[in-house]
């Protein structure tokens, strides 16, 4: 690991100033991704700014009937929080589908948003990578790309965002609270992560020195009509090949509104508002779910090894919508898909 200096600020303002004043300084919280990236020399910050002792560890009521989740609430504390389990079970389920007990204990809410792709080439400093070294090329295109994107990729990068939690946050339309050198701002979740385009080095729309301080959720919805369905190469402790967070508002046997987000398929949690609109006013049926899935995947493009993901995603979307409509969400400890 490349040596670095260590700073432990006592306030958000100090932390933001410490990172903002140095282009090579980074925030660290749980460290479950950053320390690993530093061990591979993928990340080589000259200063780490330890924010773990800042007072951002509470889950508080919001005026809109939602909640504001502090950036330093651990993934485990968030998933098992009584109110989150009751009012946002989709979020709990997605978090518990990811990582391991140990990692969820260490990883933070803010850090989960900021974790980086697990693309093999990004991690291997002996290979080119446009995300790690802009302009060096993308060997995943035409290379080993079983885990890579089928939606929204560019000629410069086909990496995926690895988070499960963020897929649920996309479906729940969370808002990210940020503090930076120029003050505070709020970023709708759909605008937080970005597609690679010709700047794959930028995973998200944060500016250097901006710190995630909280993630806010709007008032609860969907009732029992939600699910997080994750498909992967082993039954636990693996990143998604394809995952689906689905939530349906239902009334009188019809879908009044829908939210669908996909993980494992793109550089960001993938939403398609037109596909969601297709479901509005419809009674749940295999035909309408297939139509929604087809719409979401209309521009899907395989890279070779990952061609299977297109059909897998189609089936996963349909199955997730069936689970959500029936009010029988996937149970993460139960490996059968109902």
């Amino acid at each position: 690991m490349t040596p670095f200096a260590y700073v432990r600020p006592t306030s958000v303002a100090e932390a933001v100033a410490a990172v903002g004043s140095s282009g090579t300084a980074r925030f660290i919280a749980g460290g479950t991704n950053l320390v690993d990236l530093m061990r591979y020399d993928v990340e080589t910050p000259q200063t780490l700014v330890d924010i773990t002792r800042l007072p951002l560890k509470t889950i508080e009521d919001a005026e809109n009937g939602g909640v504001v989740i502090g950036a330093l609430v651990s993934n485990a504390d968030l998933a098992y929080d009584e109110r989150i389990q009751r009012d946002y079970p989709l979020l709990s389920s997605a978090i518990l589908a990811g990582a391991s007990g140990q990692l969820r204990n260490a990883a933070s809410t803010g850090g989960n948003l900021l974790q980086r792709t697990r693309c093999y080439y990004f991690y291997d400093v002996a290979t080119p990578c446009n995300k790690r070294e802009p302009g060096s090329g993308c060997p995943a295109i035409g290379g080993v790309n079983r885990i890579h994107a089928i939606l929204g990729a560019s000629e410069h990068c086909i990496a995926t965002h690895p988070s499960d939690m963020c897929v649920a946050l996309a479906a729940l339309e969370a808002v990210v609270h940020v503090t930076g050198p120029e003050g505070e701002r709020r970023i709708p979740f759909a605008e937080f992560h970005r597609l690679p385009g010709d700047r794959p080095q930028d995973d998200n729309t944060l500016k250097h020195g901006e710190m995630v301080t909280a993630v806010a959720l709007p008032a609860p919805r969907f009732g029992a009509h939600h699910t997080y369905l994750k498909l992967r190469d082993r039954l636990s402790y693996a990143f998604a090949l394809v995952s689906v967070a689905a939530g349906l508002d239902m009334a009188d046997g019809r879908i009044t509104d829908a939210r669908i987000a996909l993980g494992g398929v793109a550089h960001k949690p993938w939403r398609d508002e037109a596909a969601e609109a297709l479901l509005k006013g419809q009674a749940p049926s295999p035909a309408i779910f297939a139509a929604a899935a087809d719409h979401i995947l209309r521009d899907a493009k395989g890279q070779g090894d990952n061609n299977f993901k297109i059909d897998l995603a189609r089936r996963a979307i349909q199955r997730a919508l069936e689970q959500a409509a029936a009010g029988t969400p996937q149970v993460q400890a139960e490996k059968r898909v109902n």
């Binding site: 260590y6 660290i28 460290g31 479950t32 320390v35 690993d36 780490l48 330890d50 773990t52 007990g101 140990q102 990692l103 204990n105 260490a106």
Partner: peptide
């Protein structure tokens, strides 16, 4: 009292 991976924890933190 909480289980974590000690390989990913910086001792100073």
């Amino acid at each position: 009292g909480t289980r974590i991976n000690s390989c990913l924890a910086l001792a100073v933190m």
